[in-house]
Design a protein around this nucleic acid. Structure first.
Length: 209
DNA sequence: TATTAGATAAAA
DNA sequence: TTTATCTAATAT
């Protein structure tokens, strides 16, 4: 991400941001070593009315406090006690929202990514999950609250991907959110080989029998 | 299908 | 403060 924060990260619209981030590059540079991947799957969370959001109802705890930062900051939290999950904070300060990055297509530093994950399978599976992509890029809770405009962790936005290349579906693992669990807030590049959940499209957007 | 340990909320 | 419960997942 260049010196200025892109405007789409500051609007109260995590859905638009989640779509807009598809195709962008997520980059880390740790100990002078660069790794990066193209964002191919995202989920939108927030603002306060979203029951699937950690900060629903403006719930503010030591963990969720990060979501109240202005857009363009990193929100990294631990899931199931062992997976670091990487999000980009969205919206103005004190309006909690974020986009979860769920899958990357590896671009730079693939050997280092493999070494970090101790993974020797197909490169399309190297960062195809929210927990595996942080492991591959070396992202941990130490990166929580960083602004994403410089090393060690930043974003290079791409041109917007055309709507015809984007598929939509419900978010993963949010059954506790009641009716909000079905909201079409997960976005991915159609037919991309690095997806985490390639086949779970929304009922009203896919072809089913 | 077993697993993993931080974050949280409730209890004391 | 201690304890009990839950968890935006992964690997087998």
């Amino acid at each position: 991400m260049s010196a200025r924060c892109p405007a789409f990260l500051l609007r109260r619209d995590p859905v638009a941001a989640a779509r807009r981030l598809l195709g962008s590059l997520l980059i880390t540079e740790i100990d002078g070593l660069r790794t990066s991947g193209r964002i191919v799957e995202t989920e939108a969370y927030g603002g306060p009315e979203d029951r699937a959001s950690h900060a629903h109802g403006n719930r503010r705890t030591p963990r969720t406090d990060t979501m109240f930062l202005p857009g363009g900051h990193a929100y990294v939290y631990l899931c199931y006690g062992l997976h670091h999950l990487f999000n980009i904070v969205i919206g103005p300060a004190d309006w909690p929202a974020a986009v979860l990055i769920r899958a990357l297509e590896p671009v730079d530093g693939i050997d280092l990514m493999r070494a970090r994950r101790r993974f020797h399978g197909p490169v399309t599976r190297l960062a195809a999950g929210p927990g595996t992509l942080t492991r591959a890029l070396g992202i941990t809770r130490s990166h929580d609250r960083l602004f994403l405009d410089r090393p060690p962790l930043w974003i290079e936005p791409s041109r917007p991907v055309s709507a015809s290349e984007i598929a939509v579906g419900p978010r993963i693992g949010v059954d506790y959110a009641g009716p909000h669990a079905l909201w079409p807030r997960r976005f991915w590049l159609k037919n991309h080989p690095s997806l985490n959940h390639p086949n779970q499209s929304a009922k009203n957007t896919g072809h089913y029998h």
